[in-house]
Simulated scan of single mutants.
Amino acid sequence: MIRTVMSCEAGGCLALYVPDADAGADVLERAARRLGWRRRTTYTHTCPACAAGRGPVLERGTCPVCAGLTADLPDGATCHYCQTITPHPDN
């Protein structure tokens, strides 16, 4: 299966935005913008970590926003790069 994803074009950044479901480019763009991704040019983007000066993403992990490395903290899994907090499951 081929999926549409978005990658950060900042130097040395490994960030990716992979949507939950297959989506067209227009849906992907809108969803990524809501999460903090910025358009650099027509075909290039900057991840939330690089846009905020906390990037580049150097290690991949499970962050749903930038695919960066996360750490389990009391509030949830927190991304080292974009600071997104994913709450722990209720189980």
Rank of each mutant, 00 (worst) to 15 (best):
P87E: 02
M1E: 13
C79E: 04
R60S: 11
E9M: 06
P56Q: 04
V18K: 12
P74F: 02
S7W: 00
A51I: 02
V18P: 02
D22E: 15
C82R: 09
C63Q: 04
P87I: 02
A67D: 07
T46W: 02
R33N: 01
A51D: 12
A32T: 03
M1F: 12
I85P: 07
D90T: 13
L35T: 05
R30G: 11
A23R: 14
A77V: 00
V5E: 10
R60M: 08
T46E: 10
R30K: 15
E29F: 06
P19L: 10
Y81D: 08
T44E: 14
G68Q: 03
C79P: 07
A52L: 02
N91L: 13
P19S: 13
T78M: 13
A31I: 01
G53A: 00
P48D: 01
Y43H: 15
H45C: 00
H80R: 14
G24H: 00
T41P: 01
C79Q: 05
A25N: 03
C63G: 06
P87K: 03
A25K: 11
A15V: 08
P74V: 04
A25D: 06
G55W: 04
E9Y: 08
R39M: 11
T42R: 15
L16F: 13
R40N: 10
H88S: 01
C79W: 02
P56W: 02
Y43T: 15
P19G: 14
C47D: 04
T86P: 04
S7F: 00
C66H: 09
A31K: 11
R33Q: 13
